[in-house]
Design a protein around this nucleic acid. Sequence first.
DNA 1: TTGTAGGCGTTATCAG
DNA 2: CTGATAACGCCTACAA
Lengths: 355, 355
Amino acid sequence: MNKPKLKVSLMDVAKEAMVSVTTVSHVVNNIPYARINGDTRKRILEIIEKLGYQPNRIAKSLVTGKTNIIGLAILGFISPFFSTSFFSELINGVDNGLEKFNYNLLLFNPKRGDPDYLYKNTIESGLIDGIILEGNFIDDEFILNLEKEKFPYVLIGRELIQKKINCVTSDYFGGSYCAVNHLIKLGHRIIGFIGGPRLRTMTNIIDRERGYIKALREKGITIVSDLVVNSDNISKNTGYELMKKLLNNSIRPTAIIAANDLLAIGAMEAIRQKGLKIPSDVAVIGFDDLPEASIVKPKLTTVRFAMFDMGKNAAELLIKLINKRETSITEKILPTKLIIRESCGGKPTHENDYN
Amino acid sequence: MNKPKLKVSLMDVAKEAMVSVTTVSHVVNNIPYARINGDTRKRILEIIEKLGYQPNRIAKSLVTGKTNIIGLAILGFISPFFSTSFFSELINGVDNGLEKFNYNLLLFNPKRGDPDYLYKNTIESGLIDGIILEGNFIDDEFILNLEKEKFPYVLIGRELIQKKINCVTSDYFGGSYCAVNHLIKLGHRIIGFIGGPRLRTMTNIIDRERGYIKALREKGITIVSDLVVNSDNISKNTGYELMKKLLNNSIRPTAIIAANDLLAIGAMEAIRQKGLKIPSDVAVIGFDDLPEASIVKPKLTTVRFAMFDMGKNAAELLIKLINKRETSITEKILPTKLIIRESCGGKPTHENDYN
DNA sequence: TTGTAGGCGTTATCAG
DNA sequence: CTGATAACGCCTACAA
């Protein structure tokens, strides 16, 4: 760190080295076709070091039209979902995927304003080269517009029903299907489902219900609508209330699966309060595998999906898209995994429980 | 959204409106001293709308020397600490503070490379206008250099021992002091302390121990070194091991305070395994108030500090610094709060338990 | 192998 | 009230 002058520009280096800015630019960027004289290069490098020259990214971006920044838009930082550790896993994954390409990450909370603001302030203003979108509240229209404008994007954690788009998501359907099958294998026939909001756009939530339905159907078990409860919310409290409702049914479920761990944990509270034992009276399976899942007693059996990997894959895909190394619409669906703990029967999966 | 052409520039608008770019720029930016003719302004505005013109932030930055982006550097996304919800609270707070100033947030994981990389790639390259630093692993030297170079920065969550710098942190010392006093008031005299790493730079961890010491001293209780255990790690497992050590002492503590909730939760496990009851045999207090604290049984009494507020305050301070509306070095210490639940005695605080 | 010069889209200065 | 024009720092034909 030699006396970093206020602003050292290419020109300054060029003057000091008595060469043209072109030459300096060439050596700075290691331009292959410009084969600089060894001596000159060495001299320039020394002067760069001496002057503490650092290329100005803004100026560079202006001419290249690329900023090497991508946006990550997460809807509603503040929702219960994102006070969970998914938040950090997602960001971490994205960051990890960006790293080797030397891209930076600009974080948005589109709650800030309308999508229009997001669009104009960052996308149209040339600030970012591409965007990763997370969240169920992003309009389909917004995404379709990105597609139409050929602006690089990747949707994370869900798909669009109407049209194939760039996305990386998890096999929520399969995860749920697998979990319910596990319950059936354990002998359960009356299985409840505690769901989240049933918004049309929430394919990731809906898929869990679909998996549940499919597993039951396949075994010839009747779908009882009273055994499926939903709510707009996905908090512990909601799980608690929904479970109470379930327990007041004329037919009491011997097992339930919840659309996420928070709901499941709330449900467990309700079960206990009713004087019932988990898993002997009611088996419980969650979805997400939050850190809380391995803290609660009994430890929660749950379906894990890899938020980190989703982030990483999305970042990598986005960069391919930006560099046009991928030109067709790409969908990637990551596997989920049933983590067997104590809240339903079965042989425990050996897992690092976030110790 | 009218047919956003590939690139509509000021010049395009100017031509269409048959005025100069200057004039267009004036109306776009609402320059006060340039009082544009009402008709002209209206016409220009219409054309802007029609053409879908959107100012290019990069070009603007190049001339103004400001990007309206600030950096948030969080050390080690992947550490146990940051798989907690603090991560999202911090980011959310910062974002919230930035919002009204129309600044964007660039997120860094300085683990990526040396601090030098961070410095050159973003600070010296002119990409960001200021930076917020979180984490105990940032060298003091790095911060001092920022100060020397007059680059706007705010350190979050800790101070520097050697020199006053811009920072916003929490009263960890007071929080710990207060918690231990609470235990003393409940009649405890043999109180253990489960600490984290004792690195010199970790003022926020060290302060917790200092608060513990002070509270005991004030009441004339002897400090027993065997009652203070430390480790480099801060995970549940560590808390478990450390507590086992504590319970094997000749004098058994009737209460313990841990430097964070994860340690406390691990400790609870060890206590239970020893056949002891919480809080009757051993009272436990944590630090942080993670969501886990209100899930574990018994619910954990803990010291809460406001990560969101720290983030928000830091952002606001940073922007003042950037705009030179604050020129002297500023320290801000936010209060902490003892949240009384079930893991030690006392009247429960009424609190929203993240339901 | 190296240099000249034009241009990226804005803002700022200074005239008129 | 409005307009030329020179920066901002860099890249990149095209020339030499």
